[in-house]
Amino acid sequence: MLDLLHEDHEQLDRLCARATTEPKASDVLVAMLARHLSAEEQYLYPAIHSVLPEGPEIAERELAADAELLVALRRLHATPADQAALHSVTERVRAHTRRTDGEVFPALRERCTDTELVRLGNRVEIARSAAPTRPHPGTPSTPPLNKVVDPAIGVVDKVMDALSRRTTWEEDL
């Protein structure tokens, strides 16, 4: 799980840079980040909450930061050429990456077995594939409701993406 999410962070960083010069990269950034946050809210934060001694506080902090990021992401989605919106999302993504890669992931590696992390990684992959591709700040952000609502919204988002021919994967740019 941690390796998958770290790879997402690297891809998000690349997309933030590309979005400054490639308009279609903003669509991919929005979709990628929406999928990433959905998967973290479904599996990473519950793991943090249950495994780390300070886990409940960390999970709450990250959920609050995600809520703010989703609002900024919604603004970017509505106005992809808005450099201020892109800057806001970029700064929030970088802060998120610093916190999770630098503090949270090492603590989880110490406390979780490889088997647990692989099992969670499999679930993260499934969650990402079913997740929404647009920001939905008003939806539930904690299990069990987000595990039901996010895939349902994801289906609607994917239909809208197909109808509008919206690019949502970096490799399609």
Rank of each mutant, 00 (worst) to 15 (best):
E110S: 10
S38P: 04
P132Y: 03
R74M: 06
E116H: 08
T113I: 07
P56A: 00
L117Y: 09
A59H: 04
P106L: 07
T97S: 15
M32G: 04
A127H: 08
R92S: 15
V89K: 03
I58R: 02
A131N: 13
A34F: 12
L76N: 02
E54P: 04
R99N: 12
A34N: 06
T113S: 15
R119Y: 08
H87K: 09
P137T: 08
E116P: 07
A34P: 13
E62H: 13
E91P: 04
V28R: 10
S50Q: 08
V28Q: 08
H49V: 04
V51S: 02
V93P: 11
V104W: 06
G121M: 06
T115K: 14
L86H: 11
H49F: 09
R99Q: 08
A59C: 09
A81W: 12
E54N: 15
I58W: 02
L73K: 01
H36Q: 06
H87R: 15
L52T: 06
R75Y: 09
P80W: 10
R35D: 00
F105M: 09
S88C: 13
R61V: 04
A130E: 14
T79L: 10
R74C: 02
A81L: 10
R111I: 01
R98F: 12
A107S: 07
E103V: 11
A127V: 11
G55V: 02
H87C: 08
P137D: 01
R99I: 09
H96W: 15
D66A: 12
T133D: 01
V118M: 05
L29N: 02
A72W: 02
I48V: 13
S50P: 04
R134P: 03
A65I: 01
L73I: 05
